[in-house]
């Protein structure tokens, strides 16, 4: 698609038009940024010499005789060397000098290449295998150490929890001595009835507490000061 757009640009045909000529189904949206701008790097032919430059005579460079000879020699040598390099490259890389397009030979060379690739790949695999095994062993060691550490921590945690629960149970057991059970419930009821406790009290004008529902305030020993 890009090829079509770029090359139709030369004929001054818009990209959208160019796309319309193509048989390909994937269409690019028109984007002027895709198109190279044709810019001239010199002035047009019909523009005359600038007036200020009409009578300007460029100064000829003065090169000494021996230097000229040296430069000529350099260029001659360069051309020779260049030619030889080019010829070498033509001999080696020109498509006309390439090996025949016999499919069997191509397949053969491909297989040879593949064998070399396999060899290299196997070598790398071997190297990597050593590294991988080493790394895996290290990782396993690390994981085992981590797991052991975790197990120890879990044991300590469990121990602490066990001790905590034990403490709770012990305290409860100590407290349960005075609990009322099925066996001693009758005694407890009898005792409670026998020792009735009266929590009622009244406060007189002086702020003094008078304990008991039916107590009379005159009795001296029942007076208890709130300020105490």
């Amino acid at each position: 698609m890009l090829r079509i757009i770029n090359n139709f640009n030369f004929l001054r045909i818009s990209a959208t038009e160019a796309i319309s000529y193509s048989t390909s189904s994937n269409t690019l949206p028109y984007n002027p940024a895709l198109l190279p701008v044709k810019k001239s790097h010199r002035k047009p032919r019909w523009v005359p010499i600038a007036k200020s430059k009409i009578f300007r005579i460029p100064k000829r460079p003065v090169i000494p005789e021996d230097e000229t000879r040296e430069i000529r020699r350099l260029f001659n040598d360069y051309r020779n060397h260049e030619k030889s390099v080019k010829n070498f490259l033509v001999e080696k890389h020109n498509t006309k000098n390439q090996a025949s397009l016999d499919p069997e030979e191509i397949l053969k060379s491909f297989k040879q290449d593949l064998a070399v690739c396999h060899e290299i790949n196997n070598k790398w695999n071997k190297e990597n295998k050593i590294l991988r095994e080493k790394r895996l062993a290290e990782e396993l060691e690390r994981d085992i150490a981590f797991a052991k550490n975790r197990i120890e921590q879990e044991i300590i945690k469990e121990q602490e929890l066990f001790e905590f629960t034990e403490e709770l149970v012990r305290k409860e057991k100590e407290a349960s001595v005075n609990f009322i059970t099925k066996e001693n419930i009758d005694d407890a009821i009898d005792k409670a009835l026998a020792e009735a406790v009266d929590y009622n009290f009244a406060i007189d004008l002086n702020g003094e507490k008078i304990i008991g529902r039916n107590t009379k305030p005159v009795q001296e020993q029942d007076k208890i000061s709130l300020k105490q």
Binding site: Y78, H81, E82, L89, V90, K92, H93, N94, T95
Partner: peptide
């Protein structure tokens, strides 16, 4: 570059200079 020169591409002067400095071509005068 080898491929293209081998298939008859010319090399412009500035590029020849670069190639010469790169050691691919003889050093350009």
């Amino acid at each position: 570059i080898r491929f293209w020169i081998g298939n008859g591409a010319e090399v412009s002067k500035p590029v020849a200079q670069l190639l010469g400095l790169a050691g691919f071509y003889p050093v350009h005068p």
